[in-house]
Amino acid sequence: MSFILRWVAAFILLAATYNPTPYNYVKWVLGPQGDSLSLMVLAGLLLLIGYIIYLRATLRSIGGIGVILVLALVGALLWVLYDMGLLDLQNSSLNTWLGLLALSVVLGIGLSWSHVRRALSGQADMDDVDQ
């Protein structure tokens, strides 16, 4: 259940930044400028903090090669769904959502991988060990 929560949080972070609807940070900032610059900066900083947490944890736990492997696995799954006729890639809005889903899976796995490794091997990951 904890993986699902981490994945959903990653999806919300990515979708809040950009999605095909008019309700996202990028369209808000690039839209007509009102007197809400302070809110835009605050929201941007909150998103940046979320990205730093997720990206740092992902790169430390699965590394760059792990990111590529997870993206390749998700891409292969989408390819299979397309070949079986279950997925139509003509809709650009759907493609954007699929991209958000793929990236959120990478970030969710990256944030959860240390917990999975500890459960499977009984060993904890440590970055800095004080003696």
Score class of each variant (00 low, 15 high):
52 I>P: 06
69 L>S: 05
49 I>G: 07
77 L>D: 03
78 L>H: 00
33 Q>C: 03
27 K>T: 14
49 I>T: 00
62 I>T: 11
10 A>V: 02
63 G>C: 13
68 I>Y: 11
49 I>F: 13
27 K>Y: 14
52 I>S: 04
11 F>I: 04
19 N>H: 01
70 V>E: 03
31 G>N: 02
59 L>P: 09
14 L>S: 08
40 M>L: 11
31 G>D: 07
29 V>S: 09
47 L>E: 08
39 L>A: 12
70 V>S: 00
40 M>A: 14
22 P>C: 00
30 L>T: 12
27 K>Q: 15
60 R>E: 14
36 S>N: 09
23 Y>N: 13
45 L>P: 01
9 A>S: 15
79 W>N: 10
68 I>N: 03
8 V>I: 15
57 A>E: 11
17 T>Y: 12
71 L>V: 02
11 F>M: 06
24 N>A: 08
57 A>V: 01
64 G>A: 15
31 G>R: 02
50 G>F: 01
15 A>F: 14
45 L>I: 13
83 D>V: 04
72 A>G: 10
14 L>I: 04
12 I>G: 06
66 G>K: 06
26 V>L: 11
78 L>G: 03
61 S>L: 08
43 A>Y: 00
52 I>T: 11
43 A>M: 09
63 G>A: 15
53 I>Q: 01
71 L>T: 09
69 L>H: 07
11 F>P: 05
57 A>W: 04
68 I>F: 14
60 R>N: 15
75 G>V: 09
15 A>K: 13
48 L>S: 12
60 R>M: 13
28 W>L: 11
16 A>C: 12
41 V>Y: 13
60 R>V: 06
81 L>R: 06
54 Y>E: 10
74 V>P: 05
55 L>K: 04
20 P>W: 08
40 M>W: 06
34 G>C: 07
14 L>P: 04
70 V>A: 07
20 P>I: 11
69 L>V: 10
61 S>W: 06
26 V>E: 12
52 I>K: 00
31 G>T: 03
29 V>D: 02
39 L>P: 00
25 Y>C: 00
25 Y>H: 06
56 R>L: 01
61 S>G: 10
82 Y>V: 01
19 N>A: 08
24 N>G: 00
19 N>K: 07
18 Y>C: 09
66 G>S: 08
63 G>E: 14
21 T>F: 06
79 W>R: 11
69 L>M: 14
46 L>A: 13
8 V>N: 03
35 D>W: 08
83 D>N: 12
44 G>E: 10
21 T>W: 07
39 L>E: 10
52 I>L: 14
35 D>C: 10
8 V>R: 03
26 V>H: 11
74 V>T: 09
35 D>N: 09
34 G>I: 04
49 I>E: 02
71 L>F: 10
71 L>K: 11
24 N>I: 05
73 L>G: 10
18 Y>V: 00
64 G>L: 13
58 T>C: 08
14 L>F: 05
41 V>S: 11
79 W>C: 05
54 Y>C: 05
24 N>C: 07
66 G>D: 04
76 A>L: 15
66 G>T: 00
67 V>M: 04
43 A>S: 10
42 L>F: 12
19 N>P: 05
72 A>P: 09
26 V>G: 09
24 N>Q: 06
45 L>M: 02
78 L>V: 01
49 I>N: 02
54 Y>W: 03
53 I>S: 02
27 K>V: 12
43 A>P: 01
35 D>P: 07
17 T>V: 10
18 Y>F: 14
